[in-house]
Simulated assay, not measured.
Amino acid sequence: MKARWVLVAAVAVLLSGCDAGPPAARSSPSSAPLPAASPSPSASPSPAAEVALTLAFGGDVHFTERTAALLKNPATAFGPLAGELSAADLAVVNLETAVTTRGTPEPKEFHFRAPQSAYEAVKAAGVDAVSIANNHALDYGRVGFADTLDGAAAAGVPVFGGGRTIDEAYAPLILTVRGVRVAIVGFSQIHTLAESWKAGPTTSGIALAWDVPRAVAAVKAARDRADLVVVFNHWGTETDSCPNANQKSFAAALADAGADMIIGAHAHVLQGDGWLGRTYVAYGLGNFVWYVGSADTGVLKVRVRGRSVVGADLVPAVVSGTGQPKPVTGAAATALLKRFTDLRRCTGLAPAPPQP
C-alpha cells in the first residue's frame, strides 16, 4: 500500500447529524503515522502545506459477466491503465459490487457480486482505497455486505462510505501520504432502496447524500482531522452527461463544509469538471471496469499542493471489449479530451480556481 490508513470515529457526525429524506505525471508515496491531534482551521499551517501530490481516480468497477473472467488473473484485471493508478500518490475507485458468495438478491433490477479475488485485483492495480457508497454494495443484503466488509479487512483494502454502523459509514478514512493527512468520505445519492440500505445506529449500511446535515457534519469532521479532504459521491442521472440539480446543490453544501475536491461516478458517462470556488469538482467519471458496452472513460489525475488543487488532467480511455479501460492516443485522444472539456458548459463550474 502507498499510504497508512485509519478509520476515524467521527463523533461530531453523531452530534450534529440527523436523518433526512429522499486529467500525465506521477510520484510514489511514503507513509507517516497519523498525529495524535489535528490542527484547527485557524492553527499554524501543517508542514504538509507545500507537499505536492498526485491523486488518481477511476469510476465504477465491478467483476460480473465479461469482467468476471478478468479475475482469472487478478494481477492484470484492470488492464494497462493500472500503471496510471499505481504511479499516483493515492488512487481511488468506486467498487460497485458486493464481494460475497452468500446472501439473497435484493428487490431490484440489477445485481452485481464478485469473489474475494476482486480485492486482489484492486490491490494489484495500485488502488489505495475504494468507495462502497453506491447502489450495489448491498445487492445481496446485509449478509453479503458483511462479507464485503470482512473481505476488505482481510485483504487490507481500505473502504469508505459504508460500515457496520452509521458512525462507521460516515466516518472519514484517513490516509497519510508523504506526511499529508488525506481524509476521504463517500456518499450515495441514489434513491433505489436508499431507506432500507442506509446505515443505522446498530445497523450496517451505506452513507447517504440525502441526509445532508449528517454528510455536511462528516465533511466538517474530516476537515478538523486532515490537511486535504476528498469526497467521492455516487450520484447523477444515468446516461446524462450534465449534473442534475441534486448534484449541484449537494456539491455546494460539501464545498461550504470544507471539501477540497469532490469526485463522482454512477451515470455511466463522463460528466464535466471545474472549480466551485476553491473546491475542485469532477461530477462524473463514468464506467471504468464494466460488464457491458463501450464508453469514454479514463484516469483523472488531480494535482494538489497543500489544500490547493493546482490542476487536473484526464488520461483518456474507452471501455474495451473485455470491459477494461483501454488508453486512446492521437486524434481519438484529442477528440475525447475535447468532449470532456466541453462538458463543463452545463456544470456551472469555473475553468480555474479564483486568484488569491
Rank of each mutant, 00 (worst) to 15 (best):
K2H: 08
R4Q: 13
W5Y: 10
A10S: 07
V11L: 10
L15F: 13
L15R: 15
A20M: 08
A20E: 15
G21W: 12
P23F: 13
P23E: 14
A24K: 14
R26Y: 12
S31R: 14
A36D: 09
A36E: 11
A37K: 12
S42Y: 07
S42D: 14
S44F: 01
G58D: 03
G59N: 04
F63Y: 14
T64E: 11
R66N: 06
T67R: 10
A68Q: 14
A69P: 01
T76D: 14
G79D: 06
L81E: 07
G83P: 00
A88K: 06
V92A: 07
V93Y: 09
V93R: 02
L95P: 04
E96K: 03
T101H: 04
R102Q: 11
P105F: 03
E106A: 15
E106W: 01
H111Y: 06
P115Y: 05
Q116P: 00
V122S: 00
V122H: 05
A125W: 12
G126F: 10
V127G: 04
D128T: 09
H136L: 07
G144D: 07
T148I: 10
A152I: 05
A155C: 03
G156I: 03
V159W: 08
F160A: 01
G161A: 01
G162P: 06
R164H: 10
D167A: 12
P172R: 05
I174E: 13
I174D: 02
I174R: 14
R178Y: 11
R181L: 03
A183Q: 08
F187L: 15
S188I: 01
Q189T: 02
Q189N: 09
H191S: 10
A194K: 01
E195G: 07
A199L: 11
G200T: 11
G200D: 09
G200Q: 08
T202Y: 04
T202A: 12
A207Y: 14
D211L: 00
P213Q: 13
R214V: 04
A217M: 13
A226N: 02
V230D: 00
V230T: 05
N233E: 11
W235P: 01
T237V: 15
T237P: 02
C242R: 15
A245G: 01
A245P: 00
S249W: 07
S249T: 15
A252G: 07
A253K: 15
A255P: 10
D256Y: 04
A257K: 09
A259R: 11
A259S: 12
V269A: 09
D273C: 08
G277W: 11
T279S: 08
Y280C: 07
V281R: 07
A282C: 13
L285D: 02
L285S: 03
L285H: 06
G286D: 05
A295E: 07
T297S: 08
G298L: 03
V302K: 01
V302Y: 02
R307Y: 05
V309T: 13
V310F: 05
V319P: 09
T322S: 15
K326Q: 15
T329R: 13
A335V: 04
R339L: 05
R339N: 14
F340C: 02
T341M: 01
L343W: 12
L343F: 05
L349A: 12
A352I: 00
Q355M: 08
